[in-house]
Design a protein around this nucleic acid. Structure first.
Lengths: 232, 232
DNA sequence: GCAAAAGTGTTTGGATTACACCCATGC
DNA sequence: GCATGGGTGTAATCCAAACACTTTTGC
């Protein structure tokens, strides 16, 4: 590579964020995709993403972009990897950084806005061929999510506010692709601040399970004092 | 933020990589810094880094940049976080991505090249005020390094080829800021593929310790078969 | 009563901890 | 011999896996 490239000629790149939203429904981890109403890759499925504005920092740009395309706002976003293959975007040098969020699918009202023509939740193992290098990006990020689930109890962002211990266990079984023993699972999660509610499951044709909820505040405090070393 | 920004006007950014090299010497984790012989921040200490060329992918740019500035080549680099505060670079919008490496300080011959006027290894806890947002960048990346040490046996990239079990233990004690029991530490590392050599420590005024080396190949195979669940 | 899933207790073996003790070398 | 770390063994404890068993509901 030549030394001849002038400093100013290196200011010809663009930078985008791809916002991957993970949810959990029907026993599967799902991801929110948009159908592009814009060239390039018009009509194809893609991860919601867009260019960062000149005076935006990355976390705020992630919030804006996600909101503009999907109407989702105010969810915590985690930074993921950065992808910069020079051929990844047909219209120029666009480097992209992933931000991903975990949401309760039933609690967010996702709607296609801006140049997103359509939205759909897709099980992570049934994702179609997507625009750009979005399949690779999603794969890498899903692996990061699974690793994060192993060490931080962020699974509660995916579960409904009130959940049964079985739903909880099934989420882990799905993410780690491994069956777990019911009794042992319950012993393992003992240190987590989840509270049993008086409410019970309804409309099931067997003994209804107790509902539980997660106490985020208590968790943050226990975490501060290093009382939790959670590992699934 | 207005919708008026034209697509082409968003191609005015630049993109750099910062290459953080960690080493281990004198019982401390150290980091390689350069003194800048170039504006901005002329004469100040910084993490080695530079702009990515138009048709370079990120991993190859990381190798080039590290080599150009420090003469270090061919070391494995791990991707870190991306920093994009719009005010982080005084000369324009430069977004930067970290790549970090773990090396054996005594095995690499680091030399200041290009616009690096001087190099120095600095203990991670004695890093001076640096150019740009490099202090923040380093801090974030060091935390990532420590996390990685906890789950992957990459500590062997830091240790000399032949090491004593005590050196090994001290590296962990330093990284996790926690004293460990000698006997228990040795039981814990049993599953790792390290081999005792016939050679012994020299020039010590006590009983010389046996030297060990790490077998990377065996490790990769054990890892493939999921036989290692290493956690310090 | 039966099916189906909720929910709990027990046993066992392996890991983790704390701690004590012996060993090899230089001086 | 003694100071200095190297190196190992043991008992108590905790934890995880495997598995069996009881409970509660709908039908």
């Amino acid at each position: 590579m030549p030394n001849k490239i002038e400093f100013k000629d290196l200011f010809t790149y663009s930078f985008s964020l791809d916002c991957i939203v993970f949810g959990y429904r029907d026993g599967q981890i799902q991801v929110l995709l948009i159908k592009r109403a814009m060239e390039p890759f018009l009509g194809e499925w893609a991860i919601p993403g867009d260019l960062v504005y000149p005076n935006e920092d990355l976390p705020e740009a992630a919030q804006r972009i996600l909101f503009e395309l999907t109407n989702i706002r105010g969810v915590e976003m985690h930074q993921g990897s950065t992808f910069g293959n020079p051929k990844r975007h047909p219209q120029g040098r666009v480097i992209t950084n992933v931000f991903f969020a975990l949401v309760r699918i039933d609690d967010v009202d996702a709607e296609a806005h801006s140049w997103a023509e359509e939205l759909k939740w897709t099980p992570i193992h049934e994702v179609p061929k997507m625009a750009f290098d979005h399949n690779e990006i999603l794969e890498t990020t899903y692996e990061q999510l699974v690793q994060k689930l192993r060490h931080q109890p962020i699974c509660f962002d995916l579960l409904p506010e009130k959940f049964t211990l079985n739903e909880f266990q099934q989420l882990y079984e799905y993410a780690f692709e491994k069956e777990l023993d019911k009794a042992n699972f319950r012993k393992k999660i003992k240190p987590l601040p989840i509270q049993r509610l008086s409410e019970k499951q309804k409309n099931v044709k067997h003994r209804p399970a107790a509902l539980y909820s997660f106490n985020q505040l208590t968790y943050k405090e226990l975490e501060k004092e290093d009382l939790i070393t959670f590992r699934m």
